[in-house]
Write a protein that binds this DNA or RNA. Structure first.
Length: 473
RNA sequence: GGCCCCAUCGUCUAACGGUUAGGACACUACCCUUUCAAGGUAGCGAUACGGGUUCGAAUCCCGUUGGGGUCACCA
């Protein structure tokens, strides 16, 4: 049997890193099994719906390269893939459950439920919904008369429901501790539980891989599969990504929008690699590996269950690693150029740009650091740090001579410049540490910059000489 | 609070009854060096606690503690 997985995000806000995380595992699992990976939009809550959210989720998945096989965008044989467009389906299925006695119409108002809940909590048991005991025919009549009602699942009063999770021992839930969840709201929309189960079944989903926060609602889903007489899928609940304090990852304590990481100049490859190590390790101890390699060796059973802290420092390390060891120099330049263009900074994509990028790559973790670290490459009005100014002031007498020397270097490349410095120092009886820093300070305005001969060669003779003359006078 | 899940360095994790408990990030030194990085070398640093089972326990069992999740006509 081939594997069918899915992610089912709700379009309620920013494209979440947790969606990317779960998406990565579902995508990979489907690819391994030669199966399908579905993206289904769960937009059944009209109050929380955010119009452009869905589009941004698609963009996030595309950026990461986790392309679904079926989705609202590309369609597929099991569409539509937006629950709002499957509206009629859910009412039919809910009523089917009412007819079979597995569900019932309930008429309690919000106020009544609040009171009921308070009483139930005080008594230490789950809420008992009075409508559960109504005569079905009478209830039917009230509904037909137009009275507002929801449809609730009739959870067995006794016994237990066992959830089989691929990653842990069977989980036993006492039925008396599960309340009669609403399946169909008064507005006719389904709740998550109903829509999710109906769609997973109709779409042929074989493996439900989702976050741990769903464990407690899984017995409800199991009960639904049984009530419908359907086969339940394999469940696997992934650990929750955490903040540094171990709580569930949240906007307040961590950037959770993948767009933020995109804007900071993180690479999708690095993000994916990092995410793959949350709860899983490469069997050979590899730290750096791509999606393909991940798919080659990943096994769901190897996922660890401790909640992994989302550590930005490690993500940044991964990003730097990809910049200097995985991507080619040309690729880094191309991507950085595209990144800058996206940030409304247009620089010519030429040899000069590529040379600067090559020099800066080992000094970069994310693209957003690039411009702030390289002002002197783009303008003659770069800032001069206090330290740099001191270096310049301490070598006023030397600077004009150095300018003259550099002006006459036969070939203005790194080797030629290096030789010129050596000759100059020798002739003056000075150490290189005396003659190079002032030049660096003058041409860059900062002591933190690339190898000096290469830096000078990249800037070019004219710029270098005029800067030294200007700063040294 | 009820129910449920989880528990190895600060962080991500390896170990699948027998290892000086390994690696990576971070941190600290040192090397390289004209600065900052990168790179190299080294160091720091963990089996939450208490009982069992066993010749032998990070690993199996029980309890405690701790952390987390969940208890909506949200997903």
């Amino acid at each position: 049997m081939s594997v069918v997985t899915r992610i089912a995000p709700s379009p309620t806000g920013d494209p979440h890193v947790g969606t990317a995380y779960i998406g990565l595992f579902n995508h990979t699992l489907a690819r391994q099994g030669g199966g399908k990976f579905i993206l289904r939009v769960e937009d059944t809550d009209r109050n929380r719906y955010v119009p452009d959210s869905e589009k941004r989720i698609f963009q996030m998945m595309a950026w990461l390269g986790l392309t679904p096989d079926e989705s609202p965008l590309q369609g597929g044989p099991n569409g539509p893939y937006r629950q709002s467009e499957r509206f009629d389906l859910y009412g039919d299925y809910a009523r089917r459950l009412v007819a079979s006695g597995h569900a019932y119409y309930a008429f309690e108002t919000a106020e009544e439920l609040t009171a009921l809940r308070a009483a139930a909590q005080a008594a230490g048991h789950v809420i008992a919904v009075p409508s559960r005991d109504l005569d079905p025919a009478a209830a039917q009549t009230r509904v037909e008369a137009g009275e507002a009602a929801v449809i609730r699942l009739r959870v067995p009063a006794a016994g237990e429901t066992v959830v089989n999770d691929l990653l842990r021992d069977p989980i036993h839930f006492q039925n008396r501790e599960i309340d009669d969840k609403v399946l169909l709201k008064a507005d006719g929309f389904p709740t998550y539980h109903l829509a999710n189960v109906v769609d997973d079944h109709l779409m042929g989903v074989t493996h439900v891989v989702r976050a741990e926060e769903w464990i407690t609602s899984t017995p409800i889903h199991v009960l639904l599969y049984r009530a419908f007489g359907w086969h339940e899928p394999v469940f696997a609940h992934m650990p929750l990504l955490r903040n540094a304090d171990k709580s569930k990852i949240s906007k307040r304590k961590n950037p959770t929008s993948v767009e933020w990481y995109q804007q900071q100049g993180f690479l999708p490859e690095a993000m994916l690699n990092f995410l793959a190590t949350m709860g899983w390790t490469h069997p050979d101890g590899l730290e750096v590996f791509d999606l393909e390699e991940f798919g080659r060796v990943f096994r769901l059973q190897d996922v660890t269950l401790g909640g992994p802290v989302f550590d930005q420092a490690k993500l940044r390390w991964y990003n730097g690693k990809y910049l200097r060891e995985v991507l080619s120099a040309d690729e880094v330049a191309r991507r950085l150029h595209a990144f800058l263009a996206g940030q409304k900074t247009e620089l010519p994509y030429d040899d000069y740009f590529r040379a600067v990028v090559r020099l800066m790559t080992p000094r970069l973790e994310v693209f957003s650091e690039f411009l702030e670290k390289t002002p002197y490459f783009w303008s003659e009005t770069y800032p001069v740090t206090e330290k740099a100014q001191a270096a310049i002031d301490g070598a006023r007498d030397l600077l004009p001579e150095l300018a003259a020397t550099l002006k006459n270097v036969p070939t203005f490349d790194a080797a030629g410049i290096k030789a010129a410095f050596a000759a100059f120092a020798e002739q003056k009886g000075l150490k290189l540490g005396k003659v190079m820093p002032p030049v660096r300070a003058a041409v860059a305005g900062t002591m933190e910059s690339p190898d000096l001969p290469e830096l000078l060669a990249t800037l070019g003779r004219d710029r270098v000489v005029s800067r030294i003359v200007k700063m040294g006078s």
